[in-house]
């Protein structure tokens, strides 16, 4: 983020680490409140999805930084669409049992 700063760059990644921690703790609480039973592979799927989303966003913006606006936007749009669809599918999968409970 701050390529030529020896101070801001590590600070940036420390803050990023903090944000990820807060995000995962918050996510766990959301899932618990929504009565989603999580296990290790469900967690890995969820985090994998988030990592893929992050990589797509980072990749798109890297290309935009390289002065390739169109390439960057398309890079985000094409895999982005797939990831959104996969996210909706994953969300439905995780929430499936909870909905049934409600229905019953």
């Amino acid at each position: 983020m701050f390529n030529n700063s020896n101070i801001l760059e590590p600070l940036f990644w420390i803050i990023m680490g903090g944000l990820y921690t807060v995000f995962i703790i918050g996510l766990a609480m959301w899932l618990k409140d929504m009565k989603v039973k999580m296990n290790w592979w469900k967690w890995s799927l969820t985090l994998l999805w988030f990592i893929l989303l992050s990589i797509t966003v980072a990749g798109g913006f890297t290309l935009i930084g390289e002065n390739e606006l169109r390439a960057g936007l398309l890079f985000m749009a094409v895999p982005g669409a797939v990831i959104i669809v996969a996210g909706v599918a994953l969300g439905r999968f995780l929430l499936r049992n909870t909905n049934e409970e409600k229905d019953n």
Partner: peptide
């Protein structure tokens, strides 16, 4: 057209 496409894809979910 690409914007229309993105909208259509997300809406159709």
């Amino acid at each position: 057209i690409f914007i229309l496409l993105m909208l259509s894809i997300i809406m159709s979910l």
